[in-house]
Structures are given as structure tokens and as C-alpha cells.
Design a protein around this nucleic acid. Structure first.
Lengths: 257, 257
DNA sequence: CGTCGCGTTGAACGCTCTCAACGTTTGTGG
DNA sequence: CCACAAACGTTGAGAGCGTTCAACGCGACG
């Protein structure tokens, strides 16, 4: 299955151009803040979005220590969020795609506690937080949606903690691929065939593994016929096998028992 | 240093008694939702808190799958939040003490995605979420404080992901103890001498280690004179040594270089 | 053609887990 | 008050998994 709506080139917009993004026209609005809002409320949300901002590959949308003033909704493209420790190792907090909201971790401290870096040329909608906060006080549905979004981010991170704690490398990889597949499905893309936008090193940083381990585990998945993978082009051949692996083979054992 | 205010026995209140908790009288209000609010706004917050609720040791405040209707502010005592996987292993998402807010992970899905269990006899203030949502639309400071609280939870979980990804067992333990110490300091308790309210197994579940590893690492910290530990009574003897360990000994190496 | 970034593969090491035994503390019922 | 059991915590020995270190292949790019 191909994208429901082809991605607009937006070639006419400069970097950081003060062009208002139109939520109402955005194909991902049902995954984003406007979800469930009435038409005119969406229009009011449109108005506070100061601008779109282009972020080219490997460029940082924001960095640790930057003072916080805006949230960012991914319009197209992909991002990673990461923290760097003393040794220079990157812990990837997550990978983010169209409709995802970035920057929520910074509200509490008033400054960002991680870096958000584009994995490819991407574009975001900049949402000034002070204006958003005014608006949510006037639009109950928006308030609700914003809270749901933050809550889901908390839950997402909890699920990351889950595999970082107790899962084998093989499970982590299987779960990672299934997670990506599900998110592409939500967005109307193919859930069986897509490109990995991040490097093996990024995957390792996310899963708590080294590049070598990632590479080896992917090789195993390839060998047992679960996936086809050439460079970054992935095709999932046997979803159920991945699901079995992701639950640590317990599904099989339980089925036998 | 001892508690700023002795904990009230609350012996007159039954379990789940519909007694209004008074935020204005609570010694932890500056760590909780009322932070920064005007006096009369605190009073309005007081009014929506339907009741205090007693939770005895090992009892669940809520469980995975329970439908979401309230947040809970810890009044006194300690809680752990945990997820259980197929193998029955517990991944502890965090330990929570007075002033901490529980249940935020459930807003998005409308049902809880983890269990909250009391580590000792504890008490929480129940905050019906629908009423809170009404109130934050009337009190900007409360809205702001609520958002800060959710944001800090996101940030806290990111820092957990950090040590689950790349840290050695020794670093995790050191960081864990320092974190606890800091939180007790915030609450006016001693930061050098306190009780571990959770079992070694719980610590392991939080740090992504087995009980045996936790026990061994604690033994090492004892041997090198960083801490004194008898059963669950902890005394931190050498904070700077713990700090050096928590940064993976990099602090020393960098100092030498 | 040479370099650089990225990914893969191999071999050996080491940290943590697993399995097992034992000691200690706590709680319970006689 | 003691006996006993159960839960909790500690310690030891060995194995396994992922890491570390190293080499190599491949494609992009100048």
C-alpha cells in the first residue's frame, strides 16, 4: 500500500518561512492535536501556529539546554530524539514521524533535555507554547487532546523501559520492527514494506544494543525468513513469526502447554 | 534532618473515607499540584479532591486495565508502579513518594497501563480527572503546574531509559541511591540516611537487573566505604564517590586528563 | 582512484544472568 | 516463648549473551 496522500514538495517555502500551516488541510491531522476538534476550532489552532520550519537531514530542531518556547508537530519527514552521555554514547529516546508532537519533555524545566535531529529533510509546525496554553483554556476538546498526547508519550516511554529492562536482543528487534510497521499502517502507508530511516547505530541507541548486535540480529531475522532487508529497505515476510519472537517465544510455549 | 512536619496519624479516618484533604495544610503542597497557586485557588482545588484513600502495604491503588477516572497525589507513604510481562517479570516504572502524582499514563487510553502498589501503608488524595480538567480551564496557574508535572514525568522516564540503555550495574545502583537521596532532601528528610522502602527485587525490576546483581553491587558499595547498609537502613558515607561511580568513573578520568 | 561513512562478520572477553545453597529476618501458630 | 515456615537477602560457581576489538565489503562522493 502506498501513501494515501503524496507528500507535498513544499518547494516554494523557504526554511523557517512564516507561512501558516493549515491543520485542516494536513493529511495527518487525525493523529495530531486537531484530532476530534470542530472545524472552526481547528482554524483557531491554525492561527497560533506561527510558521512551518524546514529541518534538513542531520540538523537539530532543538538541542539540550535550548530554552523552551514551542512544541513542534512533525509535518513530514522523520526525527530522532536523543541524549548524549559523558562517554559520547547516544541514547535514542524515540523516532518520530508525521503527526507526532515534539518538545513536551521541556515544559517542566523550561529548557530542552534532549536533542531532536532530523533523519531526513523534514518539516514541522511550530506551536508557541504560551499561545497553545491560552487556547486550550478556551477549547475543551483541544485541552483534552493535548493531555491525551502527553499521556501517550508517558505510556510510550514506559513501553520502551519494558524492553530495555527484560528483553533479549532478538525480541527488541522484532518489537521495534512491528512497532514501526504499526505506525506506518496508522498513517496509511504499507505496514509490510518500508524504509528504515535511521542508521543501525540509531537503532542500537534506541534498543540499548551495539551496532554489531543490531546487525547480527537483523541477519538472523533475514536467515529465518521473517524479513527481507537490503540496506534500509525492509519487507516483513512473516509477521506472526516476528510477533512470536517479540513475546520471547512465550506465545509458542503457551500454545503448546 | 527529620521531617519538617510530623506525619499526621489520620487514625480517625477510615479507608476511603470521604474526608476532604486540605492541600493548604499539606506539608508537601509545594511539590504537588498546588505549587505556586494563590490561596483561594488552592481552596478550589481542595474542593474537587473527593477523598483521601488509604492503601495498605502490597495493596494496589489501581491495576492494569482499570478504567481511568482519577489521578492520585501521594499524601504519605511510598508506591511503586509496575508492568508485568508474559514471563511474570516485573518492570518497575518508578518509585513514588509524598507529593508525586500517579495515574497520568492512563489519560490517553482511558485505562491504566500499569499497576500502582503501596510499598507501605500509605495515603493518597484522589483527584477526579474530569473535575480537574474543568478547573484547569479556570485557573491558569493550575493548568501550567499540571503541564509541568506531566512534562517532568516524561523527562523522568527519559532519564530511566538513559541508564537502562548504557549503564553498568554499579552506575545504576549509585545513580539510584543518589536519586532517592535527592528526593528525600527535597522533602526535608535526610539525604544521607534513610530507609529503602522497596525490596531488592523491586530495585532490580527498576534498574533492569536481577536480585543477585543488586545484592552484589550493594555489597561492593559497602566494601569500598561508599555506604553503610543493614537490611533496608541506608547511610551514604561518601556522596562524591557515588557521584563518580554514577558517571561511570568518567569524572575521575576527565579530571586526570 | 582513494577516502569516508556505513554495514557486516569473526573471535575472544567479560558482565550479568542462571542455578544453587545458605543465612537472616519476619510472621504465625502452637 | 518457642518452633517453624516463608519471605527476603547474600554468596558462590558456571554459563550465556552481548560487547569489544578487529578486519573487511560496499557504495557514495570528491
Amino acid at each position: 500500500m502506498s501513501p494515501v496522500i503524496p507528500i507535498t514538495p513544499a518547494s516554494a517555502t523557504n526554511n523557517c518561512a512564516p507561512v501558516a500551516a493549515k491543520c485542516s488541510l494536513c493529511s495527518f491531522n487525525r493523529l495530531c492535536l486537531p484530532q476530534g476538534l470542530a472545524e472552526d476550532d481547528v482554524a483557531r489552532l491554525d492561527q497560533i501556529i506561527s510558521r512551518r520550519r524546514r529541518v534538513s537531514r542531520d540538523e537539530a530542531l532543538y538541542q539540550t539546554g535550548d530554552s523552551f518556547h514551542s512544541l513542534y508537530a512533525v509535518r513530514f519527514g522523520h526525527f530522532k530524539t536523543l541524549q548524549v552521555n559523558q562517554r559520547g554514547e547516544q541514547t535514542i529516546g524515540g523516532f518520530h514521524m508525521a503527526g507526532d508532537l515534539l518538545g513536551m519533555e521541556a515544559i517542566g524545566a523550561g529548557q530542552h533535555s534532549c536533542n531532536a535531529v532530523a533523519l531526513e529533510d523534514s518539516e514541522v509546525c511550530e506551536i508557541p507554547f504560551s499561545r497553545l496554553q491560552e487556547l486550550v483554556m478556551q477549547i475543551p476538546g483541544l485541552l483534552q487532546q493535548f493531555h491525551r498526547t502527553m499521556s501517550r508519550e508517558i505510556q510510550r516511554e514506559q513501553s520502551v523501559m519494558l524492553f530495555l529492562s527484560h528483553m533479549r536482543a532478538e525480541q527488541r528487534l522484532a518489537l521495534f520492527l512491528l512497532n514501526l510497521a504499526g505506525r506506518y499502517a496508522q498513517r496509511g502507508y504499507s505496514s509490510t514494506s518500508f524504509q528504515l530511516r535511521m542508521s543501525r547505530e540509531d537503532i542500537g541507541g534506541y534498543l540499548g544494543l551495539t551496532v554489531e548486535s543490531v546487525s547480527r540480529q537483523l541477519a538472523r531475522l533475514r536467515q529465518d525468513g521473517s524479513i527481507v532487508l537490503q540496506n534500509r529497505d525492509l519487507r516483513i515476510l512473516d509477521r506472526s513469526k516476528l510477533e512470536a519472537l517479540s513475546s520471547g517465544g512465550m506465545a509458542q510455549e503457551l500454545a503448546v502447554a
